[in-house]
Amino acid sequence: MPSTEFAREALAQKLKRRIKQMLGPQGVFLEGFLRHPVMVGSVIPSSRFTINRVLAPVDWDNCRLFVEYGPGVGTFCRPILDRLRRDGQLIVIDTNPDFIDYLRRTITDSRFIAVNGSAADVEDIVLAHGHERADYVLSGLPFSTLPDGVGPAIAAATHRVLRRGGAFLVYQFTPRARAFMARHFRRIDSGLEWINVPPCFLYWGWKDEDAG
């Protein structure tokens, strides 16, 4: 490669790093969306109104393990950790190694574990970290655009890993996620948060005490 091309490439990389530094976590999130739009689903992180509504039904006093799929740059992680009991644990799972690396560098809370992997493997991941069941699982993964079979596999594994009385918390930009949940969760509460870009469909799938 000619020296002028090397110089241009070096300058492009330098500008890219400078822009990411200026944008902070939003820059990391934007890059993740541009690289993996099918997995990230949105170019803008969720609003605080969405965060508060999604987390409102959680019984924090009795939550020992909270799991999140697709944490991105930690938009939900910090609010969850602020609410989580001192002996609780938050495990986040993401297929994007850049997000996982960013979270490991920026969140130093001892209750926090970031795993580079698939949400479909949540049962193995939970067991590997010393738990049998999760109390709550949160997901912002775009179910409607995931590869064939992945959405149903995640919904089924989530239902199995939840304790009885626990819940699957889902926020989406289309209502199609409810169909994936309804195959396993008999009781689903729903809502719509308008103060979000774009407006967000919210679902809380409860694993009833008499569930298998």
Results as ranks from 00 to 15, higher is better:
residue 57 P to I: 08
residue 21 Q to S: 12
residue 163 R to N: 09
residue 179 A to M: 10
residue 15 L to D: 08
residue 59 D to W: 09
residue 155 A to D: 06
residue 30 L to H: 00
residue 116 N to V: 15
residue 41 G to W: 01
residue 155 A to Y: 05
residue 208 D to T: 07
residue 48 R to K: 15
residue 176 R to V: 11
residue 188 I to D: 07
residue 10 A to C: 12
residue 91 I to Q: 03
residue 188 I to P: 02
residue 168 F to Y: 09
residue 126 V to C: 05
residue 126 V to A: 03
residue 207 K to V: 03
residue 171 Y to I: 06
residue 132 E to R: 14
residue 16 K to T: 11
residue 128 A to C: 11
residue 72 G to R: 00
residue 209 E to C: 08
residue 152 P to K: 00
residue 80 I to A: 02
residue 196 N to P: 03
residue 54 V to M: 06
residue 195 I to V: 12
residue 126 V to N: 04
residue 192 L to R: 13
residue 206 W to F: 14
residue 127 L to R: 11
residue 189 D to R: 11
residue 72 G to C: 10
residue 100 I to M: 05
residue 34 L to C: 07
residue 52 N to W: 09
residue 154 I to E: 01
residue 80 I to Y: 02
residue 168 F to E: 01
residue 137 V to F: 09
residue 130 G to C: 05
residue 150 V to Y: 03
residue 190 S to L: 12
residue 98 D to W: 06
residue 121 D to C: 02
residue 189 D to Y: 10
residue 144 S to M: 09
residue 81 L to K: 03
residue 9 E to Q: 12
residue 156 A to K: 09
residue 63 C to E: 10
residue 205 G to P: 07
residue 82 D to F: 02
residue 175 P to L: 09
residue 154 I to P: 02
residue 61 D to C: 08
residue 77 C to T: 12
residue 98 D to S: 07
residue 170 V to F: 10
residue 78 R to K: 15
residue 148 D to I: 00
residue 205 G to F: 01
residue 11 L to F: 14
residue 97 P to Y: 05
residue 66 F to K: 02
residue 101 D to W: 12
residue 107 I to Q: 10
residue 152 P to N: 01
residue 169 L to Q: 03
residue 62 N to Q: 12
residue 30 L to M: 13
residue 51 I to H: 12
residue 61 D to K: 12
residue 125 I to Q: 06
residue 160 R to E: 05
residue 72 G to Y: 01
residue 91 I to T: 04
residue 24 G to E: 02
residue 8 R to F: 13
residue 125 I to A: 05
residue 27 G to S: 14
residue 17 R to E: 14
residue 100 I to R: 00
residue 42 S to P: 04
residue 204 W to D: 03
residue 58 V to E: 04
residue 165 G to F: 14
residue 87 D to L: 03
residue 10 A to G: 10
residue 160 R to D: 04
residue 10 A to E: 15
residue 30 L to Y: 09
residue 196 N to R: 01
residue 20 K to G: 11
residue 30 L to Q: 09
residue 188 I to M: 04
residue 195 I to A: 15
residue 180 F to W: 13
residue 98 D to R: 05
residue 110 S to P: 12
residue 154 I to G: 00
residue 211 A to M: 07
residue 63 C to T: 15
residue 211 A to E: 08
residue 156 A to C: 12
residue 175 P to G: 14
residue 200 C to K: 06
residue 125 I to G: 08
residue 142 P to W: 06
residue 144 S to W: 01
residue 41 G to L: 09
residue 97 P to I: 02
residue 82 D to G: 13
residue 55 L to I: 06
residue 162 L to S: 02
residue 124 D to N: 11
residue 88 G to T: 07
residue 95 T to W: 13
residue 74 G to Q: 04
residue 194 W to A: 15
residue 170 V to A: 01
residue 94 D to E: 05
residue 96 N to P: 15
residue 116 N to A: 15
residue 135 D to P: 04
residue 20 K to S: 13
residue 68 E to M: 02
residue 135 D to W: 06
residue 59 D to N: 13
residue 22 M to E: 07
residue 106 T to G: 11
